[in-house]
Design a protein around this nucleic acid. Structure first.
Lengths: 144, 144
DNA sequence: CCGTATCCCACATGATACTG
DNA sequence: CAGTATCATGTGGGATACGG
């Protein structure tokens, strides 16, 4: 982010309106909800964590089990991802006081509701991504 | 959706196991369609470009007009975003030979179909992001 | 007008090591 | 077991300048 330049380089977003549509006095959409959501889901592990927790719903999943079901994730990234989801109230964290400690995670109702739009994305992806891959390869070939 | 156990092997989503059924994963899956889609939509300008082009559909939009409707985007990022979309066959590019040249962009049918799952995301975001923001602020307050 | 080529930096992610 | 701390790095993306 640039220093003291008051003008932000990013403002209006997916809620971009037609100039004639309605007079939005503000014009500046400091934080478009869709952008914010995409920023979260776009993270490398967020959607996978939601998926894994969603599959276990309404059961709880422990940290190590979560890690086991998300091959490739590091402890750091898993913890960070869960933190973020917890902060957003999408995930609930329950600590079982014991030695060693046990920590259980589950989706909140809000988090569970997210699985629906994600499912829409997944369905679209399953149906069309193969074609997109082909198109990409063809494009690469045709290029010079 | 069941609360069954087991690793996530379901085809089509954020699949995580190796194709050879190795059991526990050693490698993460690079070819999950949903992951690929999210990587694209997660880009800073992709979804906005789709939105703007979708609003204009079936009309075409020229480069400069697109840029005008996407405040904050640089020429580099706009060109790069459009290239990527074109490569994916989500966007069609038409060059009108003239001086100065005119280039028109429009969504393909495939690209237009993407607006539906995106709309699902947007609806969810508009309905719930405010609450998520609150939760984040409360969380920040509660934890020093 | 419509791009591409460079440079640059913040940041997301990964590897590793260390605690309670 | 469930994290946090630290360091290294690849890259997305912004600024700027040049070219067709």
């Amino acid at each position: 982010m640039n220093s003291e330049d008051g003008t932000v380089t990013e403002r209006g977003h997916l809620t971009v309106t037609s100039p004639t549509g309605r007079g939005r006095g503000d014009l500046f959409d400091p934080a478009c909800p869709t952008r914010q959501l995409l920023d979260r889901l776009g993270g490398k592990w967020t959607s996978m964590a939601v998926k894994v927790l969603g599959d276990a719903h309404p059961g709880e999943v422990r940290f190590a089990e979560l890690k086991r079901r998300m091959p490739g994730v590091s402890q750091k990234m898993l913890a960070q991802t869960l933190r973020s989801l917890e902060r957003d109230s999408l995930v609930d964290r329950r600590v079982e006081a014991a030695t060693p400690p046990r920590v259980h995670y589950r989706l909140t109702d809000l988090g569970a509701s997210l699985t629906e739009p994600i499912a829409a994305l997944r369905n679209w992806a399953e149906e069309h991504m193969a074609r997109i891959d082909e198109a990409g390869l063809a494009w690469d070939r045709a290029r010079s």
